[in-house]
Measured scan of single mutants.
Amino acid sequence: MALNTPQITPTKKITVRAIGEELPRGDYQRCPQCDMLFSLPEINSHQSAYCPRCQAKIRDGRDWSLTRLAAMAFTMLLLMPFAWGEPLLHIWLLGIRIDANVMQGIWQMTKQGDAITGSMVFFCVIGAPLILVTSIAYLWFGNRLGMNLRPVLLMLERLKEWVMLDIYLVGIGVASIKVQDYAHIQAGVGLFSFVALVILTTVTLSHLNVEELWERFYPQRPATRRDEKLRVCLGCHFTGYPDQRGRCPRCHIPLRLRRRHSLQKCWAALLASIVLLLPANLLPISIIYLNGGRQEDTILSGIMSLASSNIAVAGIVFIASILVPFTKVIVMFTLLLSIHFKCQQGLRTRILLLRMVTWIGRWSMLDLFVISLTMSLINRDQILAFTMGPAAFYFGAAVILTILAVEWLDSRLLWDAHESGNARFDD
């Protein structure tokens, strides 16, 4: 018995066209964080690309023209004298008006014999932002004059995390709450300039795509075929072959399989920071003279006294001054041990922890910024005066060393310790 099946006739004509040209192939790229070699397709503007294995951002879609970056830099340069030299806060102490600005706080630190601690604050609040705007201006002028731009481009990517104007702005709020127990506070004209400078700096850093600047100024022929001998440069993120001198053909720094002496430098910085954190938390970090009496505060006791007036601000200072430094030390110690013992479990967790400490590390400088600003506000000789204690130097040095330890660690070593050939990683 035959089955009668109805015929289905399409209502619209289906047209099949042959592909007349070869589909576009992607360029081969190595991930600078996990060293995976993959094919990167062509990316349009405002599109980002991520590593298929570790999800690290390979290409950032946010990109401004150099002219727009230069305009932002010149605007920031105009704001800087007002943000640093004009009063941020006014207080009335014992019937006398006192003005506080950024430069005055750094000068008070240096004047009291601790120039190293003052230079830490100076670099993060004044030096690094000033280098940022002058570097962008150098790129703008240098591109037109045919100057060598490689050193500036190499420095810009590392400079971003040292620009800490946003953290200093939080420190202004913390210092205001600490001082309000002794005097009446009012915002100064410099505060508005400083807030504007923070906003412009944040926007500029978020749109400063150094890798795209490398592509514009020093374009290189990408690798179009897969080759395990391809290496990625950690300076400019170019994937290719080393030249005859073993250097990256684009930025001219040595092109090595792994960062040289990464573990040794990381261990040295980490152990030194552990040693410095002990006096930083045991010795007094601030000293207040009130009517001839002397009151010393460690980091913890200062947080407890701050909690009596504002528990939320005390929580912020606790996280930045105690929780973050010790968390960074514990995480980095764990990561280094996992590399030495070739741990194969929990790779995803370790990668996330490394990215976390990379982002939060700079916030530990908050305590030094609060001390710097408070020193310029309260300084009335023996009637009422505020000065920093010996722990300030140890704390600042420990924070900087932990930042350097994270920067010096080559994250690809975590993958080397893991089993080879993993296309995915999980716990």
Score class of each variant (00 low, 15 high):
I185Q: 03
T349Q: 13
I199G: 08
L257T: 06
S376K: 13
R59Q: 07
G396H: 01
T9D: 13
E42G: 11
L23D: 10
K265D: 08
L271Y: 03
V125E: 03
L255M: 10
N209M: 12
A280L: 07
F141V: 14
R30D: 01
I185P: 00
Q382G: 09
F217R: 13
G20N: 09
P151R: 01
C34H: 00
N4K: 10
L94W: 09
I116Y: 09
A183F: 04
R350F: 14
R294K: 09
C236V: 00
S286F: 03
L271Q: 08
F194E: 15
F333R: 00
G142H: 02
G113D: 12
F386R: 00
D27C: 11
L373E: 05
A417M: 10
L255I: 06
L132T: 05
C266L: 05
L153A: 14
W363I: 02
C124K: 02
A183P: 01
L149W: 02
A175S: 14
Y394G: 03
K160E: 08
Q55T: 13
H340D: 05
W359N: 10
A272T: 08
T110A: 06
N209D: 05
A385L: 03
I19S: 10
F141N: 00
R259E: 09
A312M: 08
L377I: 03
L200S: 11
M1L: 02
L271G: 07
P242L: 09
L409G: 03
T374Q: 00
Y168L: 15
T110C: 11
D427V: 15
L200T: 12
L401F: 07
L401M: 12
S338E: 07
M164S: 03
H261R: 03
L337Y: 15
M1T: 00
S411M: 09
V329N: 13
D367R: 00
N4M: 09
A56S: 11
W140R: 03
S305T: 10
L205A: 13
E22C: 08
R258N: 03
A71I: 13
V399T: 08
F238A: 06
A397F: 08
V16E: 13
L276C: 05
T67Q: 07
M72Y: 03
D27V: 14
F74W: 06
G105R: 00
S305A: 11
Q7W: 09
Y168C: 12
S308H: 09
L132Y: 05
Y50A: 15
F341C: 12
V174Q: 02
L323G: 09
D410P: 02
L366Y: 00
I136M: 07
K57V: 13
S135G: 09
A312T: 14
L271K: 06
P81W: 07
P325V: 03
A73E: 12
A175P: 03
A392T: 03
S48A: 15
I8N: 10
L3A: 15
P325Y: 01
G173Q: 03
N281D: 12
R62A: 09
A272R: 00
